[in-house]
Design a protein around this nucleic acid. Structure first.
Lengths: 162, 162
DNA sequence: TGTCATTAGTTAGCCTAGCTAAATAATAGT
DNA sequence: ACTATTATTTAGCTAGGCTAACTAATGACA
């Protein structure tokens, strides 16, 4: 985003006197916010490649590797409200990628498991679905990738919340 | 996301033999994808605090700091299609945060500029709007923030594309 | 000068992702 | 048997994103 540096400057009192020395959280938050938006917009445009929207893939991933899982737990894992998960799973089910399964002991509980097709799609599409981002990253110097590899766990922690 | 590590392992051939040594782009892309989704979901839940959705704030930010800007340029900056920008700007205009302005020489061209209110809102709300993320980052060790500060420009490059 | 192509934005219509509030259904408690 | 709690769904809303098709203005040029 072109205006990014201008915006950075505009924060006045907060911006770096000593670059790299304990950067201001608010600045970092602002830029992370922006970069996340733009990253996802780009991926969204490419998700035709795999045929499915990103949130569905993310949920499918949890279902495939998290075994049969209750809708509630899935909602918690994906950090969304229950109705959102109902819709997501509905879409995955319609696509034949997952199956609902009612708990024998407590019939309120619904578990979702991946079908063979769901698992296959996820494994097959693993690279393809984020192909463009993968390509971008592949063009970075190895040192940059190493840096990202270290930064990602931190991001995951921050994304999970306090 | 709980399943994340399991997913990492599942990529088999791609996962790290030597941790930190030129990590596989596909792995990084996968995790970035996921973390971006979760980050934005969290921010979206908080954007009530500032009263506006993230994409509107992002666009407003470009308008405020990028001066009067044509809709086409704004769409390019935000990496979205023209109709999306028309809608976004429409919302901002309705909220009284920006104004349309038709070019005198070429009357097809529309420029948007921020109103005083728009500028004020952006400046006032700068921290508040990503307050939760800011708080999360503030809790990180300074070393982690330093790491993020270095990683963000790389992310911005990757988000911008190849 | 009159037509034709190009460019900038808008409109219409669609889909997905979120949410809250309220309904349904099953279980658990008293 | 009521009542409360828990798990999920339904209904209805806002928003962001897209494509396709339209309008309007400009520019080229025969």
């Amino acid at each position: 985003m072109p205006a990014r540096s201008a915006r950075g400057k505009s924060t006045g009192k907060r911006s770096g006197k000593r670059p790299g020395a304990s950067p201001a959280p608010a600045d970092l938050a602002d830029r992370l916010h922006s970069v996340a938006i733009h990253l996802l917009r780009r991926l969204r445009r490419e998700d035709d490649a795999s045929g499915m929207p990103a949130p569905q893939l993310s949920a499918l991933s949890v279902i495939v590797f998290g075994g049969p899982i209750t809708l509630g737990a899935l909602a918690a894992a994906e950090q969304v409200r229950p109705p959102t998960i109902t819709k997501l799973v509905g879409a995955l089910e319609t696509a034949g990628l997952v199956e609902r399964e009612i708990d024998a002991g407590d019939r309120r509980i619904v578990r979702v498991r991946s079908t063979a097709r769901g698992t296959r799609l996820l494994n097959d599409g693993r690279q393809r679905r984020v192909a463009l981002l993968t390509a971008s990253l592949a063009e970075l110097p190895a040192a940059d990738r190493t840096m990202l590899a270290k930064a990602i766990p931190i991001l995951e922690k921050a994304a999970r919340g306090p």
